[in-house]
Nucleic acid binder design. Structure first.
Lengths: 209, 209
DNA sequence: TAGATTGTTAATCGATTAACAATC
DNA sequence: TAGATTGTTAATCGATTAACAATC
């Protein structure tokens, strides 16, 4: 694509994907921008504008084919290109993610976990080996994982992110409730900040009072 | 406040709070909109516009007092008003949240957990009692918690959300990777959608390629 | 006082919505 | 064909940035 796509549109892409998959599961084969918009809480116009950032997936007088559009959005999101991930930190949250998160359906394969606790180093979690965090640099240099998942205490976030960037990581999925300021800003960071989310909820509740 | 504050501003409030707390910890007593903006990746102008949605916290020629501004933003976010929360679902993610998430520093007190697994019903997790999910309606009717945290499998999300709304819940913190469409849209929902976040990262990595 | 920096208005920029010709 | 619905341009709306008088 030539013209850059706005952040707002990018953040809606996964939602299109999810809703289209739902439609597919229900056996729906075509959908109009109007109906898809209603389902997602968007206007028909916005749906068409969003999709046309990437190409003309619809057909006049008909609508959009669910299967085709779902596949196209999957390709735009690169879900069809399997990328590898390592996770640093196997406390409760890290463990929850390793055990339950379906990396594969989001285009990822989790290949290794790292921790500093001797009690878990050398074990496996759901089939993923846990290595000593001191081996992180060597491992990443040798294996070139695509993404690092940060689930360790926030005080180590900068240091670990630095190591990952040194080794050529391509993206960071950050759960540490810290704004990472990477030296290399070519490395995209996606934050999942529980605390910020809950504070927003706190605010909204206050408003409704 | 009279004029409604935009979503974009609201989502930045927790970040102001976090960064101001950092400054406070470093012993900084005053900060200009310029310096705060630099720290957060915003323009000085935007910082001033944002803060002036809620009041004039600064002083010409001086800047903003860190302590005072931090406290004011805490009040805007209602962090000083303790609200109660119940969590539904004590799998890995639910357990991770119960064990590790600091509800208190975000203005909440977690009071109960619910699950359907007989093996955990009747136990405690970090001091929080786990009840049978079938008791959820009665418990909420009797105790009127403010917020429900959804960490159960997504297929139950609608049903549980319905029960919570029936009982007068004031907000929902939704981890189920589903868009909840509540009947009562007076109840705010905050989503923490891991899959959407990772898909966005997948997209961004693809762009950098 | 002079310098710094706010609060606030105006200008710009970008995103959403509306409109409609194209066309299946 | 007639009806439906897209792709796309134009209009509107809202958010960000710039500018500057007020003032500490």
């Amino acid at each position: 694509m030539e013209k850059k796509v706005s952040q707002a549109v990018i953040r809606r892409l996964p939602r299109y994907h999810t809703h289209l998959r739902e439609l597919q599961d229900m056996g729906v084969t075509k959908i109009s921008s109007k109906d898809l918009g209603d389902k997602m809480g968007l206007t028909a116009s916005q749906v068409r504008q969003d999709l046309n950032c990437f190409g003309g997936f619809g057909q006049q007088g008909y609508g959009y084919p669910v299967d085709g559009l779902l596949e196209s959005i999957g390709q735009i999101l690169k879900l069809d290109q399997i990328k590898t991930a390592v996770i640093v930190g196997t406390g409760n949250l890290g463990r929850a993610i390793v055990n339950n998160f379906n990396f594969f359906s989001n285009g990822f394969k989790l290949v290794a976990a790292f921790d500093s606790d001797p009690a878990v180093i050398g074990t496996e979690i759901s089939g993923i080996p846990v290595y000593d965090v001191r081996q992180l640099r060597d491992y990443c240099t040798a294996n070139q994982p695509d993404v690092g998942v940060l689930t360790m205490p926030k005080k180590y976030a900068r240091e670990i992110a630095g190591i990952l960037c040194d080794c050529g990581i391509r993206g960071i999925w950050n759960f540490t409730n810290t704004d990472l300021h990477l030296d290399i800003d070519a490395v995209p960071v996606e934050n999942v900040h529980f605390a910020e989310s809950l504070m927003v909820l706190s605010y909204k509740i206050g408003e409704k009072k």
